[in-house]
Design a protein around this nucleic acid. Structure first.
Lengths: 171, 171
DNA sequence: CGTAAATAGTTTATATATGGACTATCGACA
DNA sequence: TGTCGATAGTCCATATATAAACTATTTACG
């Protein structure tokens, strides 16, 4: 029975999936979305001291990897899996906080975003602590369970990326 | 190597986790958050014909289960894992669309929310189609893999719920 | 009984996110 | 070379989400 696989009855997920007949697929999708609901705010909590959000942290992480060459707005959006209009606002706020900066390119349509010195300093301080915090959040799972989750998520994501591209092509 | 467990190098997740040293825990957390980034908009796409969003659909699902007794605002928020201030706006929009309605209770602080007839009709039409859509999205996984994912997510969520309660109690 | 603490919901300010319309620029090719 | 379509980014309207401050009740207990 699907409900048994999901754990005890006190898992509030069953409240939601009750309404969909609690079949395996609905249960899986809701399970993933619901885990995100718990995980995402808990990840952000540790960043609050630094006055940045989870979305900002992820953007800064990518910008740090990109080094002084920076990343084009579009590339940033692609890697964060968000729309370009979202990137505009996100970078606006990072710029306002002095953590990142825009710069023009030879292609005058394009803009690159780079970490500022302040941004680099913040990330060098925040990211080890953040990594430690993520380890705490997932401490209840064994290394094997983590690897299994990573593998299955990767498999699912590969498929979802395909479906997403199909939709985009059709539109 | 952790990167191998996550799949090929073309998985853009590696871009992000590069910045954190790609240890197992960071990879797992980002994996879950990133899967959500793909899954959530794909779930919503099928609801767009009905002029409702994913959040609204989930709320309506819970309200349908609750029947004519309805759900208190707070209970709705708890089951959706969102804050009470979010529920206010969500129910405002459902009410404006004529899909749900507020009603007073004997406890004059509390408000219950109920589906309207229009809301019930919409859900009865939309939810079988939605369930079929969710099945399509997860078709690449075997039943065993789905059960494994559901079980591990449930285990992780149980722990995260504990951590969340601790934080709340401390504040 | 009467007040202090807890509870239920709203309001406000802000961040995240989308889709669609718009502007500017680049590239292809007739 | 001129123009037409694709590309890069911004702007607008709207939905989702939070935290913090606020109002109105209810409950606990002294």
């Amino acid at each position: 029975m699907a409900a048994a696989a999901a754990g005890k009855r006190d898992d509030e997920l069953t409240f939601v999936t009750d309404g969909l007949g609690a079949d395996l697929d609905a249960l899986l999708v809701f399970s993933i979305l619901r885990t995100h609901s718990y995980l995402s705010p808990l990840c952000e909590a540790a960043l609050r001291d630094r006055r940045i959000t989870g979305a900002q942290f992820n953007a800064l992480l990518l910008l740090r990897s990109a080094g002084k060459a920076g990343l084009k707005m579009g590339a940033l959006g692609e890697r964060l899996v968000v729309t370009k209009s979202n990137v505009t606002g996100l970078v606006d706020r990072l710029e306002r906080q002095g953590l990142a900066e825009r710069a023009g390119t030879s292609d005058r349509r394009a803009t690159v975003v780079r970490l500022t010195k302040a941004g680099r300093v913040l990330m060098d301080r925040a990211s080890p602590r953040h990594a430690a915090h993520l380890a705490e959040l997932t401490a209840c799972l064994s290394a094997g369970e983590k690897r299994t989750l990573i593998r299955l998520h990767s498999k699912l994501r590969r498929e979802l990326r395909q479906l997403r591209r199909q939709k985009k092509g059709a539109a």
